[in-house]
Simulated assay, not measured.
Amino acid sequence: MFMYFGNMCNLYPKDGATNLAYTSRPLNLHTDLVFYDETPGVLFLHALEQHRGIGGDTILSDGFKAAEVMRREYPKQFHILSTANAYFTDRGVDSNSETQSGFPYIKLNRGRVINLDSNNDISYIRYSNHLLDSFTDIPVGEVDEFFQAYKLFYNLNMEHSLHFKINDGEMLVADNHRVLHGRETLQGKSSRHLVITYITWDEARCRRRRLQEKFPEILPNLP
């Protein structure tokens, strides 16, 4: 469980895990921390030790591209995912807690899968199969259509996905509002060890502006 932005969390397979991130099982394409109102914008995934056997490949997909394909080729399904609210939830005990018993939590968020701004442009994606709650306030007659659209969006992302292995010492930096990521099954015994953390886009842009002031000859003058 990742409690707050800025905390670094060690990811490795362990016995008795209640979170898929700590297992050898596959992780379907998703964006992280979808149960927060404000999901973190930038994801950092540092590979300290990569799985030596078959599997463990990282999967990435441009969610904006998949959404635009859906808008163009499946407008009805696009409308559903950009207007209907889904619930995302996570519950358990904080494994990073300093208390002996851990800190129990129930995270819950209600939001749209494809979010549009005032110009009708895609602003961010909120998607996670393993955190999608079975509860919904979608009218009964529209539930099947919602889940069909939800599955279609996943398939479109998989069609345009990249599969590769992060090497020891490499770091993946991704836009968590746009890029869906996942993991292939780790086959055999694994000592795979990754560290993950996040920052908001506000903080990233703040640091970029300060660096632009310091190195104007190197960095472009972006807003």
Rank of each mutant, 00 (worst) to 15 (best):
H163P: 00
T185S: 04
D168W: 06
A204N: 10
Q187F: 13
V179D: 01
T200Y: 02
F164S: 12
R192Q: 10
L194E: 10
E159L: 09
L194N: 12
M171L: 08
T200P: 02
T185M: 02
R192I: 07
K214A: 14
R178M: 08
R192Y: 12
V195I: 07
K165Q: 13
M171N: 00
T200L: 01
T200F: 00
S161R: 10
G188V: 05
L211W: 02
I166T: 10
R183G: 04
G169M: 00
E159N: 12
D175K: 09
R183A: 02
E203D: 07
V173A: 04
H177Q: 03
L172P: 03
N176W: 02
R208K: 11
W201Q: 13
R178Q: 12
L180D: 00
H181S: 09
K214C: 13
H181C: 09
V195H: 04
K214S: 14
E170H: 05
T200M: 02
I199D: 12
H160R: 14
I196Y: 00
M171I: 02
E159R: 15
K189H: 11
T200A: 06
T200E: 08
I166P: 06
L180E: 01
R178H: 07
N176L: 01
E203G: 01
R209N: 11
V179R: 04
H193N: 09
G182T: 02
F164I: 06
R208Q: 13
R183N: 05
L211Q: 11
